[in-house]
Design a protein around this nucleic acid. Structure first.
Length: 439
DNA sequence: TCTGGGGTCCTAGGACCC
DNA sequence: TCTGGGGTCCTAGGACCC
């Protein structure tokens, strides 16, 4: 600190909470018969494993394992698989975040199953007490299990949560902020540097070459040295591990700067006509998400891909991007550009397995520069905007794909649309699929 | 037969300007 | 003839996250 008169900065106390094996726990909620069964949830198209419960992790199934490769293994070990049901998980997420928000006025919703809370305003309650209160209430109100980590910074709170998950003796709560330096060092000496938030596989490898193996090693490293050898990101991470806050709590998520919609097809696509259908479908989703955050796009991009695992087939990864004459949120305009771009890169004779669209250079609606000439008449534009609002309202109420432009979403599934053979019901968001209780 | 989808940030290097 | 140096903007690619 400087000289007298300037108060010590208050030590912050940040909690990080996440749901244990979130998607799997959701699936188990309405299936008490699966309480003792190992569960996995598969990616879109039933491609590979994106969530495993504790039992499956113990069986050694890695994240990203292709489902077709482990079907037999799953049968042998009684593993139950589900297609991902994002409508259901999204609804459960909202409920969990709601409960967590009651524990602090300052909440950052970091991902579908993770939240940071600033506990600094309640210094008198011990971390253990708050942590157990959070666990208990989330369990009672939503049925889902969570762990709680508490630290002086976000990075430390994430680490504490990791410890809470991996040390059963802690009962699901770990408060690193309450530990003294020696206790904290003991914990951090026992954890590989790879587990730190912001340290991925590559960085961990390079750090090991410099003799930095554990969390304690990283915390003890010279931050300026880290900045010179790596980046400011790693410098911040190291400072955060020492209790020096470098990352703020983002209570209001900043608007997205780009939006992507893409899928792997369930059967190859050979014709530009079918590919154009996929462009229309994905642009419908992307544009709706963009309008929901009140943005317009300054540029559009598309890409198409063959199956890289089929090495004997002709390979083509094509992409194209174009700045728009004027920023737009009009689905008809955006779709027309996407289809046009796709036609420029499409190669006849290729078996395409995946495509996607991107909305780029997003800016808030109303702040865009207007075209000097050729500008659409204001009433035309207003009418289009109202049409888009209606589209979003109808799809919001009756489900995605109820209303669409051109041929997108008006008929049933295409032969290329994604596979979801193991889908659970939409228990909480569809009257027709409510769980049934029997006497 | 079958191998996910959606984001962010940082850095390096080139183009361009004065 | 000699061939500086700093700033900004843009893009591609790498790395990370869930």
């Amino acid at each position: 600190m400087q000289s007298g008169g300037i108060p010590e900065p208050t030590v912050r106390r940040i909690a990080h909470i996440d749901v244990n094996a979130f998607y799997c726990s959701c699936e188990r909620l309405f299936r008490p018969d699966l309480a003792e069964r190992p569960i996995v949830v598969l990616s879109n198209g039933d491609g590979c494993v994106v969530a495993r419960d504790a039992m499956v992790k113990r069986l050694g199934v890695p994240m990203g394992q292709p489902w077709f490769e482990m079907k037999r293994f799953a049968g042998k070990h009684g593993i139950v698989a589900f297609s991902s049901n994002y409508t259901f998980y999204g609804d459960m997420s909202r409920r969990v975040m709601d409960v967590l928000g009651r524990f602090s006025p300052d909440q950052e919703i970091y991902s579908i199953d993770e939240s940071f809370l600033d506990l600094t305003p309640q210094p008198r309650l011990s971390g253990a007490v708050v942590g157990q209160a959070i666990r208990g209430r989330v369990r009672r109100w939503t049925g889902l299990p969570v762990c709680v980590g508490i630290g002086r910074t976000k990075t430390e709170a994430k680490l504490a949560d990791w410890i809470a998950k991996h040390d059963p003796a802690l009962g699901g709560v770990c408060d690193l902020a309450a530990m003294n330096g020696i206790e904290r060092r003991d914990r951090e000496t026992a954890i590989e540097v790879r587990e730190v938030w912001g340290v991925g596989r590559r960085l961990a490898e390079r750090l090991r070459n410099l003799g930095i193996f554990t969390v304690a090693d990283l915390a003890a490293a010279d931050p300026r040295h880290l900045r010179a050898h790596f980046s400011v990101m790693l410098e911040r991470t190291a400072r955060e591990l020492r209790g020096e806050a470098c990352l703020e709590l983002d209570e209001v998520p900043p608007p997205r700067r780009q939006i992507v919609a893409s899928r792997t097809f369930s059967a190859p696509v050979y014709t530009p006509g079918e590919m154009a259908e996929s462009m229309r479908t994905y642009m419908g989703r992307a544009a709706a998400r963009m309008r929901a955050q009140g943005s317009v796009a300054g540029a559009v991009g598309v890409w198409i891909e063959t199956n890289r695992f089929r090495t004997h087939e002709a390979q083509h990864n094509g992409s194209a991007t174009i700045p728009l004459p004027a920023p737009s949120d009009d689905e008809a305009v955006l779709t027309a550009w996407a289809v046009e771009l796709m036609r420029r890169i499409f190669r006849p004779g290729c078996r395409y397995w995946k495509s996607g669209v991107m909305l780029l250079d997003l800016i808030p609606r109303g702040s865009e520069q207007r075209l000097l000439f050729d500008a659409p008449l204001p009433e035309t534009e207003a009418r289009r905007h109202r049409a888009m609002q209606t589209l979003d309202a109808v799809n919001g109420k009756w489900g995605r794909g109820t209303l669409g432009l051109g041929s997108a979403g008006l008929r049933g599934p295409r032969h290329w649309s994604m596979k979801r053979e193991l889908l659970s019901p939409r228990y909480t968001t569809s009257w027709r699929e409510l769980p049934v209780a029997r006497a």
